[in-house]
Computed example of a mutant assay.
Amino acid sequence: MRIHRHLRPLLFSPLLSFPHHITPPHSKTIHTFTQRLFKLPTPPTPTPNNHTNLPTFLTHASRTALSPSSTTYIGTHYEYTVQQTLRASNFTLHRTGGRADAGIDLLGTWHVPSREHPVRTIVQCKALKTKLGPNLVRELEGTFASAPAGWRTGDEVGVLVSPREATRGVREALARSAFPLVWMLVGRDGVLRQALWNGRVEELGLGALGVEVRYDSCVGGGEGKKGEKGGAAVGLTWDGEGLSGMDAVEGEMARAEERWMGMWMGDAGGEMGDAERWELLEVVERMFPEEKPLLLGMEMGKCCSALSEEERARVVQTLRGRRALEGDDERVAASSG
């Protein structure tokens, strides 16, 4: 099994501390209906500390006078920095937190092109100042068995993120692993500078994944030239093209959802409120558990649903039957009152 090393050591520069007064755009949350419609796993329950992204954590830290030098502040700040940074690489991630997190810092999905279903993703963040060893890879491997049910599908990837470079021992451990694993160097400034993965990742159908150097994304005042302060950032690619980022993915999902709902509104003969939308989704899930809006179908100009006209007619008939029964129940209740 080979490990993919796309970057040379000379591309890395000393890491900069993240200015605590600067807050990048916060991570978005996919609506519950959309999440269920697209068969996305249920994210973990938010921590009881009332923060789910970097801006809300900074507000919490200020309100509670949490010291920026404390291990809690440093670790949590880095986890949310990683959460935000990886959105550019088509990850949508949720922080787990708490004592029962099974060693997992972030859980979510990786929405790579050419896949109708995103890859389940387990992330560990190691904001360590000490040298990193292969024991961290073994620790990440252990999270596959302890992850929530929605992340134990046989189609998940583990991601280890640190502000330090992967040592030789870490790279060798990645290559030997029987699990699909990714290593990413994300600085405390939120810049991705290194990405490595083993052959198991390609076996998940991610063979088109690559890395490109982005000198125009330098940090620390550089102007995008190699060797300037801050160094070069890197970005993940697919078939040689840069990934679109989660904002674009969520836009595609919204358009697919709109087309999918429009298909049913035409069949049902009118607009749907929230209650009707949820009722439709429940009926479709019961009758056709695999049905979801097709993103790739939209790209190829095809229908956004895998259901035939006959199957859609069966769903509509079931909905009308349920509503007729509900109407009968209401009339009986009114007459008895």
Rank of each mutant, 00 (worst) to 15 (best):
G227T: 03
M246W: 15
E202S: 05
T237S: 13
D189E: 12
Y215N: 10
G220C: 03
R188N: 11
D216T: 13
V249Q: 04
A232R: 08
L192M: 07
W183S: 01
R193Y: 05
M246T: 15
A208W: 08
T237A: 10
G222E: 07
V249R: 13
W238R: 10
M253W: 09
R214Q: 12
M184G: 07
V213Y: 02
R193I: 05
Q194I: 02
V170S: 00
M184R: 06
G221E: 05
K225Y: 04
L204C: 00
E252W: 08
L236N: 02
E203A: 07
L192P: 03
E223K: 13
V186H: 02
G231H: 09
E241W: 14
R188K: 09
R176W: 14
A173V: 05
W183C: 00
E203N: 07
G205S: 00
F179E: 14
L185P: 02
E223Y: 12
V249I: 15
R193L: 00
L243P: 02
D239K: 15
G227D: 02
E228I: 04
T167A: 08
M253Y: 09
A208C: 11
R171N: 08
G190M: 06
G227Q: 08
G207M: 08
R171Y: 11
W238C: 06
E228G: 06
G235Y: 02
R214T: 12
L206Y: 00
G190H: 03
L206F: 05
E172P: 08
G242I: 04
V182I: 15
E241D: 13
A233V: 05
D239I: 03
K226Q: 07
K229G: 13
G242F: 01
L243A: 12
M253A: 10
A248C: 13
Y215H: 11
L181T: 01
K225H: 11
L206P: 01
D216W: 13
D239G: 11
V213I: 11
W238H: 02
A248E: 15
L243R: 09
W238P: 05
R214N: 03
K229S: 14
G199N: 09
G242M: 07
E250G: 09
G205L: 04
M246Q: 13
V211F: 05
V201S: 06
W197T: 03
A208Y: 03
G230S: 07
G224R: 06
N198V: 03
E212Y: 05
R176C: 12
A208T: 04
A232F: 03
P180N: 04
G210E: 13
G221Y: 01
L236W: 06
G199T: 11
M253R: 12
L196V: 14
V186P: 06
Y215R: 13
A233W: 10
N198S: 02
R200D: 03
L181Y: 02
E252P: 00
A175R: 14
T167R: 08
L196G: 01
R188Q: 12
L185N: 00
K225A: 06
A208N: 07
A173W: 09
N198G: 10
G205C: 06
G227A: 03
V211S: 11
G231S: 01
G221H: 01
V211T: 10
E212D: 14
S177P: 10
G210Q: 08
R168V: 15
L236E: 11
S217Q: 14
V249G: 00
